[in-house]
């Protein structure tokens, strides 16, 4: 175990939005197959941190590494485009608002990246789409259009779309925050299943119960900094920091 390098490593991540410092030098790493949940109040920078892992946000300082390759390395514009496109193919990202492609069918949503980016033949890509849909329990929706799906189904398709690129890690940005309460479980179930398959995952979430259940480690962020991190049992039951305690208390009462 000791010789295994981390799958994701973030060192001294800093980010400004105008004069506001939203990430104040964050360090954290995620081991291969590990599941890390990031919690914290809105505006704590947790989504920005997640988005900077696959460079949807550009850091103003610090480094991000994926499996031994620096994500935010300094390159000429063209070379960087090529580099970042290939890095992103190795990271699946799931968004709060699903961001399915409304002009494409479910099958095409999943197949388009393997076809266009990996040169997969159409029939193979469709077979792959079917396999991924089977995984998320939506094989019967293969020819539906996104507008016909419920929120929970959309998010499961979005997960299938990300998985179709066979990523090394999956990043979840409040994947269930936009869902009606009764649709949350079906998405959580898929994420638990991925956890059981030892997918490396970083999960930004507001759901403490789910974080406690699925995560190997929980990171609590506030005001752009990591306040506390630890095993879910320790962090949720015996938080060391006052800031963590007050956040968790508010959360459990609200």
């Amino acid at each position: 175990m000791t010789d295994v390098r981390p799958m994701i490593e973030v060192r001294g991540a800093r980010k400004f939005f105008g004069p506001l410092e939203v990430l104040k030098g964050i360090d954290f790493s995620v081991a291969r197959g590990q599941i890390v949940a990031v919690i914290g109040p809105s505006g704590s920078g947790k989504s920005t941190l997640l988005r900077s892992i696959n460079h949807l946000e550009t850091l103003d300082g610090g480094e991000v590494w994926l499996d031994g390759v620096q994500v935010n390395q300094t390159l000429a514009r063209r070379a960087f485009e090529k580099h970042i496109n290939s890095v992103r193919q190795q990271m699946g990202m799931v968004f709060q608002h699903f961001n399915l492609f409304p002009h494409l069918s479910v099958a095409e949503n999943i197949a388009i990246a393997p076809m266009k980016l990996k040169g997969m033949a159409k029939a193979d890509a469709r077979a792959l789409a079917l396999k991924m849909l089977d995984k998320v329990g939506l094989a019967d929706k293969i020819d539906a259009f996104p507008a016909r799906l419920s929120g929970g189904q959309k998010q499961r398709v979005a997960i299938a779309r990300a998985l179709a690129m066979q990523p090394k890690v999956m990043l979840f940005d409040e994947a269930t925050s936009a869902l009606d309460p009764e649709l949350v479980d079906e998405v959580n179930l898929v994420m638990k299943q991925l956890a059981a398959e030892h997918m490396t995952m970083v999960i930004v979430t507001h759901e403490m119960r789910f974080a406690a259940e699925v995560a190997d480690r929980v990171i609590f962020m506030a005001d752009g900094a990591v306040v506390e991190e630890g095993k879910p049992d320790d962090l949720f039951r015996n938080p060391v920091q006052e800031r963590t305690r007050s956040f968790l208390k508010k959360f459990l009462n609200g």
Binding site: L56, F101, A113, K116, L117, R161
Partner: peptide
Amino acid sequence: GQMEAARSLGF
């Protein structure tokens, strides 16, 4: 979000 989703897939 459409552009972001496409970029996140590696396009």
